[in-house]
């Protein structure tokens, strides 16, 4: 019964946050709206990675590739073809999913570090092609000034668009995590041998998880283009992938909302530390080391760990 009340409270809390976020663009300066929208996009990417890393226990080290493929697809569709805009918006995630399936199909044959290495090599192959194919992708420079439909032309409108899509994606992810499939995935993470023994097709579940996660990464890529109107090869580079990985760990990779927190921390750090010093990666590195030494469960994990005993106690008393 107690549980029911807290969940209701949580829903109210989320509704209030959503409303506050809806009001933001009208009260905040343009720059802050932009930063918040960027945090939305990045947190969607980090959440999608967490489906594989946190819930699936796989070393998905080159998740940025799928984000980049989604972004490049939509940017190319909008600049090089005259197809309707929504086709591009759908094609982005679809291409990311196809890439995810192909790369994942090879990767799930391997485990842990080999999985990571194979993924990095396949992802780097895509990066190298995008980096070098000047006539199609603009190579080093990327593509700038991607035309957007009139509806998304103002920054506030693209903010709302991103917020709505993010909300839908988060709901979908929550349902996936709580579904039997999500539970199975977590069981595989904790003990693959036993799952194999009780007749679960481990590889197929892992591949499914990768495909789902890459779909959301592709959505994040599309939203990135909506926000920035440009793409560049750094989106496909492995440094970005590791940064996203760190967001998951920073926020807490065993919690659902942790990656959002991690993305918010890293994006705002980069923005606001970047104002004062150009050595922001130094700051990030130091924070990371502090984190490894003192908060291995991540920020969210730490707070949940602090409050969980309390919640358990309360639940115990109310019985």
């Amino acid at each position: 019964m107690f549980r029911g009340i807290t969940e209701k409270r949580l829903l109210w809390f989320l509704a209030i946050i959503f409303i506050v976020l809806l009001i933001f663009p009208s009260i905040l300066p343009r720059f802050y709206t932009y930063i918040i929208a960027l945090i939305f996009v990045t947190s969607l990417l980090a959440m999608s990675l967490n489906l594989v890393v946190g819930y699936g226990g796989m070393f998905q080290f080159h998740h940025g590739v799928f984000y980049g493929v989604g972004a490049y697809t939509v940017a190319l569709m909008l600049t090089k073809t005259s197809l309707p805009v929504w086709v591009g918006f759908v094609a982005g995630p679809v291409m990311a999913t196809v890439t995810g399936f192909l790369i994942g199909w090879f990767c799930v044959r391997l485990t842990r570090l080999y999985f990571a290495m194979l993924q990095i090599s396949l992802g780097s192959l895509i990066w190298a092609i995008a980096f070098r194919w000047y006539t199609l992708t603009g190579g080093d420079d990327g593509i700038h000034g991607v035309p957007m439909p009139a509806l998304l032309s103002s920054q506030n409108n693209s903010y709302y668009f991103i917020l709505v899509i993010l909300t839908i994606c988060l709901m979908a992810m929550y349902l996936i995590v709580k579904s039997p499939f999500g539970r199975t995935l977590q069981a595989i993470r904790d003990n693959p041998q036993r799952c194999e023994a009780v007749g679960i097709n481990v590889r197929r579940h892992q591949l499914k998880a990768i495909v789902i996660a890459t779909f959301f990464a592709g959505v994040a890529g599309v939203l990135f283009v909506v926000l920035e109107r440009s793409v560049f090869p750094d989106l496909l580079f492995w440094v970005l992938s590791l940064e996203v990985f760190i967001m998951c760990l920073l926020g807490g990779w065993f919690t659902f909302a942790g990656p959002i927190l991690g993305a918010a921390i890293i994006v705002s750090l980069r923005t606001f530390v970047g104002i004062y010093t150009e050595y922001w990666t130094l700051v990030l590195g130091v924070i990371l080391i502090l984190l490894i030494f003192f908060l291995p469960e991540g920020v969210m994990g730490y707070f949940l760990g602090k409050f969980r005993p309390l919640a358990k106690e309360v639940a115990h008393r109310s019985e």
């Binding site: 760190i246 760990l249 150009e278 130094l282 590195g285 130091v286 990371l288 080391i289």
Partner: peptide, 16 residues
């Protein structure tokens, strides 16, 4: 992750 953090720190130290 530690080696990644080390990379971030060393890169900026080189830049400095």
């Amino acid at each position: 992750l530690f080696t990644f953090a080390l990379m971030l720190i060393l890169d900026d130290l080189v830049k400095i």
